[in-house]
């Protein structure tokens, strides 16, 4: 009922005010939905690891076009479930490829809108300077107490971390030192607060203006884990939005790509080769 109502509003936002809905709650929902689909405002769900570069991209986009972008930041798994149940996001920047592809199979996306926007890089990071050397020996020596990784079941960066440990032959020795964050943002928090000496986190979290912002880090070679490819897709509520169409063009443009790379992501063009 709610979903049907939302879709109706998406198709004809101007009629929103004359539709009478008996339930107050539903009415409120529809008002919210109607305001979201106004032509010059778009709402996008973004995976937590990509939040900072996305803000920079949106700021640039808003300056250039006058459109307004609302961002909802969270875990891809949660957004996936919400979109399945009719959340009014117009586009979705996932931390992986599987979820956008699944949404596409379920008919919740605009056909041919899916593309790879970034390739994530894994980094061994410590909040303490000089705790991590440039060859990753800190990990191999195994003298640390706690190593934080993201939950490998839920987060692509967690899966990549486990794969890296496996390929280094450290999986069993590291197991008793592992602590898991529910997502990569929490994993970073464990390391930043010093509760875990080491962490395998996203390069985008520690990179500012092209270099490591604080602490010490080892960029894990990409031969040690499968590429972390991140896909974005336009969702059904965004199919008639002109603002979103121009955002889609912008996010794939050179200036936007430069912003993405400055936060430590590899560009999707080389990602396409890696695939």
């Amino acid at each position: 009922m709610l979903k049907a109502c939302l879709i109706q509003l998406v198709n004809a936002p101007r009629r929103a005010s004359v539709i009478r809905i008996p339930c107050k709650f539903l009415a409120l929902w529809c008002v919210v939905a109607a305001s979201i689909v106004r032509a010059d405002e778009i709402t996008i769900a973004v995976a937590a690891n990509f939040a900072t570069p996305m803000e920079a991209i949106c700021q640039r986009f808003e300056q250039d076009t006058g459109h307004k972008v609302h961002l909802a930041v969270g875990s891809s798994g949660k957004f996936f479930a919400q979109i399945e149940h009719g959340a009014p996001f117009q586009a979705f920047f996932s931390a992986d490829q599987a979820k956008p592809a699944q949404l596409e199979r379920n008919g919740l996306t605009v056909p041919n809108s899916r593309f790879t926007y970034a390739r994530g890089r894994l980094v061994l990071w410590s909040a303490a300077p000089e705790a991590v050397d440039a060859t990753g020996n800190a990990l191999k020596r195994g003298t640390y107490h706690k190593l934080a990784i993201a939950n490998p079941k839920l987060a692509p960066y967690g899966a990549a971390a486990v794969e890296t440990l496996k390929n280094l032959g450290l999986e069993s020795s590291a197991r008793k030192h592992l602590v898991q964050g529910e997502n990569i943002a929490q994993t970073f928090q464990f390391v930043a607060s010093g509760n875990a000496e080491l962490g395998l986190v996203a390069l985008s979290q520690v990179m500012r203006n092209g270099e490591i912002g604080s602490g010490s880090a080892w960029l894990v070679p990409e031969t040690l884990y499968s590429p972390i490819l991140q896909d974005a897709v336009i969702l059904v509520p965004g199919r008639n939005s002109a603002a979103l169409a121009s955002f889609w063009e912008f996010v794939q443009s050179k200036p936007a790509q430069r912003i993405i790379e400055s936060y430590g992501y590899a560009s999707p063009h080389s990602a396409a080769q890696a695939r």
């Binding site: 875990s75 949660k78 479930a81 079941k153 839920l154 898991q180 964050g181 529910e182 929490q186 875990a196």
Partner: peptide, 26 residues
């Protein structure tokens, strides 16, 4: 628990966190 536990089986992974994991993993 989620904030300070680190999700370690048998040490800090309590039922509520386990449920959350199940839900997140669909």
């Amino acid at each position: 628990v989620l904030m300070i536990g680190g999700n370690i089986p048998g040490e800090t992974r309590v039922v509520s966190v386990q449920i959350y994991d199940h839900v997140e993993a669909l």
